[in-house]
Design a protein around this nucleic acid. Sequence first.
DNA 1: TCTGGGGTCCTAGGACCC
DNA 2: TCTGGGGTCCTAGGACCC
Length: 398
Amino acid sequence: VSWSEPILHVDMDAFFVEVERLERPDLAGRPVVVGGPGPRGVVASAGYEARRLGIHSAMPMSSALRRCPDLVVIPPRHDVYRAVSIRIFEVFRSFTPLVEGLSLDEAFLDVSGLQRHHPSSVEVARRVKASIRDETGLAASVGVASTKFVAKLASESAKPDGLVLVRREEVASFLHPLPVSALWGVGEATRAGLARLGVETVGDLAALPEPALARAVGPTLARHLQELAAGIDPRPVVPDAEARSVSIEETFDVDVDSDDRLRIVLRGQADRVAVRLRSAGITGATVVLKVRYPDFTTVTRSSTPGRRIASGMDVYRAAVALLERLDRQGRAIRLLGIGVSGLEPADRPRQLALDGRDRWHDLERSVDEVRARYGGATVIPARLAGSPNDPPGPSDSG
DNA sequence: TCTGGGGTCCTAGGACCC
DNA sequence: TCTGGGGTCCTAGGACCC
């Protein structure tokens, strides 16, 4: 084995569930999921005992419990998973700086620079797996290949706790029997469109003339998919890029009708988004309001005020104006959310003018410091501290 | 069965500017 | 009075991923 397959895809096995098991030996051998416990919860991560019973991520929790009444349901603790994730990524970077994270528990590594120190990329992969286990006690599966997407498919076939190498010359025979849905970018909609053309496997896709494919899925996706089917994927491993948006959303247990209630929720969400902007040292250009109705239709409304968005008050003012502009025709709301995009570093020279917005920003930044020192719930907006029957006013009295 | 929460990227139309 | 082509920004929706 030489170095013609220098891309690793490392994927933690049942990550959230296995992190919980580290603290819960009593869960050994039992079917466990992590996910929303409420009436509208879904499975975020399923352990292997649960998967054997047909339970998988994104499944409604009510369905999962119907399949397995003894299922152990653990509410997500993202702070804990994030802390473990940071340690895992430190392990990755101890091998190479060329680490591209896809989520908390998954990353590509380009190890082509390690040829002087290791006999093969597969040997590097073994050491990465061992280091993660030493550092966290958790199992990872690793795919090793000449391209990113083949490495990703290889790690999938390695699960659980495995390591799979796909040599360059084996790529076509590895890919062609797979269902098209295995390809990155082929979800339910594209899969159904391809099925109408009689395309079920990656091999079928590779054999289809590109014009026919382009008519079904559009020219851009068609070209991309045929390259993937031929094993062509020139995308390099790019060390983590800056975030392009931050957002917060909430699905209510019971649909919400009251405008006052919606504004209170928006105020809290605006503050949480702004805390994340400030802790990342960034500001935004555009605020996006997201609304889902009981029939699951989802709409977004956005505005770009023309000045940088930094404070929770900036976010709230924009979001509440968008909510007022929305004509919901008496419909209740199932989900409400706020996003901010057009992100840029906040350290660009700012006006020193004491306009209202900068004062809000400075005030909230000092609140951040108090929170950091004394704990999360110490300082909250006054309108959230009062009785829920006190409607928020349209003024700045938040 | 009845569908979370956090993201990325693409498309398409209209406004606006040169 | 009728009319180009291209580029960029904004908005909205949708597919997709973990």
